[in-house]
């Protein structure tokens, strides 16, 4: 290869590099622009998604005559009295309703954690006759609509004299009635190395000790995810309290909110919205605080 040829080849190479570089620049530019459009669209879409919630929040602060008739999200005057008056608007104060909801929620979450981790440990780690059969049955119960078991359960709890107490809401949770959490925990327990159990067994640990001192401490993410979801679901639960709680003194927050609808016209919309906002606050706080666990929990188990 002589000098001219070499120079020519080099020139061609330079040319190729330049074209490639320009192409990359153009591509980058295109991609940047596409990204920008995407962001603009997503921001607009986010606003639409959030608008109903923002409208609820705004309406809870607006004076009564401003709620309907304006799309605006900024109240002309901030009517905080909607909150203070709404709190006392029903025959029983919301202090009672929040106390009731808190009692039910805390006990149900504890029940779910204990009973579901028990069952999950048996399914994930222990060998016993009939394990496959029971695991299959457990998965089948996930499909059963609550409405199918509702009537016999109601008759049973009525005969036990439990209607108008919190027992029909709480006791089932101590009997692992939420199979979803068993499933979630089984998935997690299975990932824990078996060597740990075996080592503990050689050291003479009982299966209970292994459950308590090896498996549970290593499963905090799964336990936390279950706790968060059961907290949110129990807090929002409407059907079971609607059926079992009669005395307004025993009402949970969702039942109390329903009273606003039942006496619509008499009560103020602003107050109803204010109490609605407050009922969502615990859920939103949990969501913001534990977003990562919630997102991962759904992605791995497919919970609603």
């Amino acid at each position: 290869m002589n000098a001219t040829e070499a120079a020519l080849a080099e020139k061609e190479l330079d040319e190729a590099a330049r074209v490639a570089h320009e192409y990359r620049l153009a591509k980058n530019k295109r991609e940047r622009r596409a990204r920008l459009f995407k962001h603009i669209f997503l921001i607009f879409f986010s606003f639409i998604m959030l608008y109903p919630l923002l409208w609820l929040l705004a309406s809870s602060l607006k004076p009564e005559n401003e709620i309907f008739g304006s799309l605006g999200l900024w109240p002309s005057t901030f009517n905080w009295s909607n909150y203070s008056e709404g709190w006392e608007a029903l025959p029983v104060s919301f202090t009672i309703f929040y106390r009731n909801s808190t009692i039910v929620t805390v006990l149900c979450v504890l029940g779910n954690l204990f009973s579901c981790s028990f069952a999950a440990y048996a399914f994930a780690r222990l060998e016993f006759t009939g394990k496959r059969l029971f695991f299959g049955l457990m998965m089948m119960t996930l499909m059963i609509p609550y409405h199918v078991v509702l009537i016999p359960q109601y008759v049973m709890f009525l005969k036990l004299g439990w209607v108008d107490t919190y027992l029909p809401l709480i006791v089932p949770r101590f009997l692992a009635s939420d199979g979803f959490f068993i499933f979630l925990m089984v998935q997690f327990f299975r990932q824990i190395p078996r060597e740990l159990d075996e080592a503990a067994q050689i050291d003479g640990c009982s299966s209970f000790k292994i459950y308590w001192a090896v498996i549970l401490p290593l499963s905090l993410p799964a336990l936390a995810t279950s706790a968060i979801f059961s907290m949110i679901w129990v807090w929002e639960d409407f059907l079971a309290p609607l059926i079992y709680l009669n005395d307004i003194q025993n009402y949970t927050v969702p039942l109390a909110l329903r009273l606003f609808i039942a006496q619509e016209g008499e009560s103020a919309f602003g107050q109803m919205f204010a109490m609605s906002v407050l009922s969502l606050v615990p859920v939103v706080i949990f969501f913001v605080a534990f977003q990562k666990l919630i997102v991962r929990g759904i992605a791995t188990s497919g919970m609603k």
Partner: peptide, 15 residues
């Protein structure tokens, strides 16, 4: 995702 989490609540139905 937020609407999915709040959607089951009575507050949203009222809204």
């Amino acid at each position: 995702y937020l609407p999915s989490l709040l959607g089951a609540s009575i507050a949203i139905a009222i809204l």
